[in-house]
Simulated assay, not measured.
Amino acid sequence: MDLTVAGTRAELAEAMKAREHAGDRVALVPTMGALHEGHRSLIRLAHEHADHVVVSVFVNPLQFGPGEDFSRYPRTFEADLAACAEENVSVVFAPSADDLYLPDRQVGVSAGHMGTIVEGTFRPDHFDGVLTVVLKLFNLVRPDVAVFGQKDAQQLALIRRMVADLNVPVSVVAGPTLREPDGLALSSRNRYLSPEERTTALALSRALREGAAYGTPRDILRAAGAVLDGAARAEPPLVLDYLVLADPATFTDVGDDHRGEAVLAVAARVGTTRLIDNVVIRLRA
């Protein structure tokens, strides 16, 4: 299958025209590039749900706050194209910010209360930027299915809520978190870590494993927190932003009476690198 690269909205519309005319099912995998095996797994999952897969490669300025890593976020476009070709992607949509956003842009998507808690506490307006670009991509690609990673659990919950609240005709599919052999969740930001920082960062996945071994919210958080407390005394230290056990649909804290799925989510900094991770736990009586 030949890969089409669309650098503008007009080129994307032309690329999608024949597929829409044929009535083929289309899946979208939104990315910010720097593709790794986790992204490839999402593309493979997308192929299970559609005839054609579209991958967007766009480092979205709206979701980066002051002092965050927008300028240094890894950009590996040629390698990304090669990966997409290997995974039989039909179209790569790689617009510029000037093409995607009007210079006097005024209207965006508000993430509401859920966008201000947990991750939103530390990254104000982040989820507004995420939802705005995702809705634009949905409108431009018009996919039947969109695939997102479970690693960004709060983002996934908010996209599902946006689709429901705004009646967006797309099915949202979640792909599982992939990990390095040492347990670190795959992330484009892992390349920032020095060997010593990576050793400290392994406490995130270790904390999630320890917590998941327990049955009540109190014990889950206690066990995971103990691991993170130890990592805070390491060299270099881990600086914790949050550790929460939350409802996967609303990201509000769950209590001891909660039954069913809950997300144990963590965010922390090691050196200048901020990492997130989570695991889904089923709580029973």
Rank of each mutant, 00 (worst) to 15 (best):
Asp2His: 12
Thr4Pro: 01
Ala10Ser: 12
Glu11Tyr: 12
Arg25Trp: 11
Ala27Gly: 03
Ala27Thr: 06
Met32Ser: 03
Leu35Val: 08
Glu37Ser: 10
Gly38Leu: 08
His39Arg: 03
Leu42Ala: 08
Ile43Cys: 00
His47Leu: 02
His47Met: 07
His47Arg: 02
Glu48Pro: 00
His49Met: 05
Leu62Arg: 10
Glu68Tyr: 06
Asp69Tyr: 10
Ser71Ala: 15
Ser71Arg: 08
Glu78His: 08
Leu81Lys: 08
Leu81Arg: 01
Leu81Pro: 00
Glu87Asn: 08
Asn88Val: 04
Ser90Lys: 02
Val91Tyr: 08
Pro95Glu: 15
Pro95Asn: 14
Ser96Met: 04
Ser96Ile: 04
Asp99Arg: 06
Arg105Ile: 07
His113Phe: 14
Gly120Cys: 11
Thr121Gln: 13
Thr121Val: 11
Phe122Asp: 10
Phe122Cys: 04
Arg123Asp: 10
Gly129Val: 07
Leu131Met: 09
Val134Glu: 03
Leu135Ile: 01
Asn139His: 12
Ala146Cys: 12
Val147His: 05
Gly149Met: 11
Gln154Gly: 04
Gln155Pro: 03
Leu156Phe: 13
Leu158Pro: 00
Ala164Met: 12
Ala164Gly: 04
Asn167Met: 14
Val168Ile: 15
Thr177Gln: 01
Glu180Cys: 12
Ala185Lys: 01
Leu186Val: 15
Leu186Glu: 05
Leu186His: 05
Arg191Met: 14
Arg191Gln: 15
Ser194Met: 08
Pro195Tyr: 07
Thr199Pro: 07
Ala201His: 03
Ser205Val: 12
Leu208His: 04
Arg209Val: 10
Glu210Thr: 13
Gly211Gln: 04
Arg218Met: 02
Leu221Gly: 12
Val227Ile: 15
Val227Thr: 14
Leu228Arg: 04
Gly230Pro: 00
Ala232Pro: 01
Pro237His: 02
Leu238Gly: 00
Val239Pro: 00
Asp241Ala: 03
Leu243Glu: 04
Leu243Lys: 00
Val244Ala: 13
Ala246Tyr: 02
Ala246Met: 03
Asp253Tyr: 04
Asp253His: 09
Val254Pro: 01
Val254Asp: 01
His258Ile: 05
Ala267His: 02
Ala267Gln: 02
Ala267Asn: 01
Gly271Pro: 02
Thr272Leu: 02
Ala285Ile: 00
Ala285Gln: 05
